[in-house]
Amino acid sequence: MYTVRSYVRPESLNEAITELRSGKHNRVVGGGVFLKMQHRAIGKLISLDGLGLDQITETEDSVHIGGAVSLREIETNPIILEHFPALSYAVSQIVGVQMRNLAQIGASVFSRYGFSDIIPCLVATGAKVKLAHAGEFSVEAFLTMDRDWDILYEIIIPKGVTLSYDNLRQTNGDFSSLNLAIGKSSDQVRIVYGARPMGAFLAEQASAAAGQGKTLEQVTQLVKQEVPFGTNLRASAKYRRHLAGVLLEHLWEAE
């Protein structure tokens, strides 16, 4: 369990980022589900509950998700269901309703968990994140940048992308042994594997080949060549490499 010196509930994003950056041991609390399992000494614990970041809205060309939107809201929200039903499905596979009512997308994405089911979907759509200090970045750029002492307060997903998603879990509610998200727009295909068990990986060669109309066998071959897979308790690298082709075939045939 962690310890906390003080708890603050800022009234504005500016106030929140100022509080966060005022000490190196300060932390933002999102859903708090994983934070509570950590053993660390926190200076200020900063809640974003008062910032109104729990809204999903849309414009003509994009969907905007506030950083404090719960995973359950993403699962059931009419805007998400209309434009990205596969994202709703991906989120619905995570643990249980009670946990999804607590966990928030901003914290989930900011933490860049390797097992994430959400991040591959966002990369596949070409989504962007807005950070209070550093600014706006594509999700794949965000995955490799220095992002400490910042606040992810909004996710922007462009419309016009058809998203599909599949995964394999050993049991319901477990982390994915491997997941796959594919985003298709008028000009490109983006094939993204997650839970490899490392973080989301955009298969650029395979995506380009799929966009050029290559066959499933050709695209699968490229996936197996370019996507690094690893071994952990849930699956071996060899099994994941095989599974990558199976998931791709599922989504390919579903179209």
């Binding site: 589900v33 509570k36 399992m37 607590l102």
Partner: peptide, 27 residues
């Protein structure tokens, strides 16, 4: 379990089921 897996500690907060083992009382 206290790891947000078992559902034993479920209560309703603002009519929504949540895991009371994972929600800070301050929040």
């Amino acid at each position: 379990c206290e790891t947000a897996n078992c559902g034993l500690c479920t209560v309703l907060v603002e009519d929504k089921p949540v895991l009371s083992c994972s929600l800070l009382s301050l929040r």
